[in-house]
């Protein structure tokens, strides 16, 4: 009996730090944020104890709805292009001989040795008026004057795609690498063309990787505000930028909290649909 009791106590002691950590650093702040989103901001600084729904009604104003719409649209565009570019990349990477797979993996990892902020500043050099992109296009005679792409929506989209593409490539690769390629041979043997074999066998079997890639690109692309900051100037405002602005400049914490809650609900809904579609609780390549 004593031994069992001691075991139990030891088990509790082992998991307790994790619980404390979870409550203190995850559940706590979330509840704090949720509560705050129903409070009123004080005249100058901080919050008052008055309850209200005004913050949420505030979001329904056209300016803010527009921001959500723009964020969602950018997230969709980003995800679409990472799928189009990342799926083939990950898929064909898995078909390479092992040595080359390793080399490709290195190429995917190396950019992460530099801060992503720095890499975004790199894009400024590419996009700014008379920058590298303009010089090349004009030298080739494709355009005759600078495109002035910096601080536009496309520049932000390119930055997002660039930042999130490796995650898509990696999760598709993780799925495709596990696939039994003999199944494709079986499909070909049974009369399927290369394309039919891909559609009926490879694609369904790499779907989990594609789904997790989508989750891994869609959700961050709603929140990577620094990319919109650096490449979009003030012209592209995303939900992330709005939250940051309300927190740091306007000091309207309750409104920032309400915006965050809505953003979280959107991502949770997205995850819900992800699980419905993929029949999976796991994120391929992550778990």
């Amino acid at each position: 009996m004593k031994a069992i009791k001691r075991d139990k106590r030891a088990a509790i002691a082992a998991v307790l730090p994790m619980y404390i950590f979870t409550v203190a650093f995850i559940a706590g702040p979330l509840i704090y944020m949720l509560v705050m989103s129903f409070l009123v901001r004080d005249e100058s600084w901080g919050i008052t104890n008055e309850l209200t729904l005004r913050n949420y009604l505030h979001i329904l104003e056209p300016v803010y709805l527009e921001t959500f719409k723009q964020s969602l649209r950018l997230a969709f565009i980003t995800t679409l292009f990472t799928v189009l570019a990342g799926y083939p990349a990950g898929y064909f990477m898995a078909k390479l001989p092992p040595v080359w797979r390793g080399r490709c993996m290195m190429l995917l990892i190396i950019p992460f040795w530099t801060s992503s902020l720095m890499r975004m500043y790199g894009w400024i050099i590419v996009f700014r008026a008379n920058g590298s992109l303009d010089s090349i296009l004009m030298a080739l005679g494709i355009t005759d004057k600078p495109l002035k792409l910096l601080y536009t929506y496309p520049a932000v989209a390119v930055g997002m795609i660039y930042a999130l593409l490796p995650f898509m490539i990696y999760s598709v690769y993780a799925s495709a690498e596990k696939m039994d390629w003999e199944l494709v041979e079986a499909a070909r043997d049974l009369g399927a063309s290369r394309f039919r074999a891909f559609l009926t066998v490879s694609l369904p079997l790499t779907m989990p990787g594609l789904y997790s890639g989508i989750v891994l690109t869609f959700i961050p692309s709603m929140g990577l505000y620094f990319i919109a900051d650096i490449l979009g100037g003030n012209k592209v405002v995303l939900v992330g930028n709005l939250i940051q602005e309300q927190l740091m400049r306007v000091h309207d914490w309750p409104f920032a909290a309400a915006l965050s809650v809505i953003l979280m609900i959107l991502t949770t809904l997205f995850l819900f649909f992800y699980r419905k579609l993929s029949h999976s609780d796991k994120l391929e390549g992550l778990v």
Binding site: D180, E182, L183, E185, A186, A187, T200, V201, L205
Partner: peptide
């Protein structure tokens, strides 16, 4: 096929 290669 030797390992049957049924589509899972």
């Amino acid at each position: 096929f030797q390992n049957y290669a049924l589509f899972p």
